[in-house]
Design a protein around this nucleic acid. Structure first.
Lengths: 162, 162
DNA sequence: CTAGAAGTCTATTAATTAAATAGACTTTAT
DNA sequence: ATAAAGTCTATTTAATTAATAGACTTCTAG
């Protein structure tokens, strides 16, 4: 799997929306400005994220984008698969399994590819947007108990990253 | 990291040469035929493998290619890095480390990318060409003690694949 | 010692993908 | 009604990928 510039932009946009979760719709312009992304390109990316129902839009004046689910319930793998395709380094998991079954000569090679994809999937499916979006850009007006940044309610935690 | 068609061809060629290790130089044509690879394209790939000193060539009549080291001492990561570049899903390990140091906003994201590249590196650096090349295509004229296919003298063995 | 077999090198091409950019259109708050 | 904002379609440019072509060099065998 290769993460393109576009894929990186998508992840950055999602992180920004996570930081502003529950603050209403955020304009494309503001996302682009805060993350320093090309505005017109970002527009297309957000459309894709919307069609995949990861974000939702509000049209018209006062419109913008927001996450459709809490950041802790959006996995990095969802965003990456959408924008950059399968996590496998070659083909996709299904293809690889089929090749392992049918191509005796190269079975072991494809099995290695599948191992690599499984290792990547394990990480990217157990890391959420909340895990990587720093709580708030301006660390002001934080009332209530400080939520620890990396807490993942439903996903397995990778201890090595804390 | 994405493995291209070219990268797959390179790995297949290396596997074929591994099967014919210690049988002298093998002609491009024979590699292409046995692995069903486009001959002219394979030629360019072998040139690259030669420049990287993974294989060596014999020119002129009776010429061809052979591995420069025993198959058990050639890691998949060497071939993949040569043909398809860094193992990281974005940029390379050095860049990622630098971004983790300098870009506080996106540190955690780049750390995940680095985790993914480390997981891939672990697998691909501990698997050798010998591990994946089936011993010999025609199981004929095998004199001496049968060498077990997957034995890796210097590399850590991944038990799950045997 | 020369003919042919084989690798070497450079260039070109066609197709695809990546990364934008442009502009007209639609929806909605005020 | 107007302006702000998302939507949609098309176009462009550059890079990459996957190959193909052909002239050149080296070496072995006869």
């Amino acid at each position: 799997m290769k993460i393109s510039q576009k894929g990186l932009y998508a992840l950055q946009a999602m992180m920004m929306l996570a930081r502003h979760y529950n603050q209403g719709a955020i304009r494309i312009r503001d996302i682009a400005y805060e993350e320093e992304l090309p505005e017109k390109f970002l527009e297309l990316i957000l459309l894709e994220l919307k069609n995949a129902r990861l974000v939702e839009s509000v049209r018209g004046a006062k419109g913008g984008y927001q996450l459709r689910r809490p950041p802790s319930e959006i996995r990095l793998s969802e965003v990456i698969r959408l924008i950059d395709g399968p996590l496998a380094p070659f083909g996709d998991a299904e293809q690889l399994r089929s090749l392992i079954d049918r191509d005796a000569e190269h079975r072991a090679l494809y099995q290695v590819f599948l191992d690599v994809r499984n290792a990547a999937a394990k990480i990217l499916e157990s890391t959420s947007i909340a895990d990587i979006a720093n709580p708030s850009p301006k660390p002001r007006q934080r009332r209530g108990k400080k939520t620890q940044p990396g807490v993942l309610p439903m996903l397995v935690q990778n201890a090595s990253r804390n």
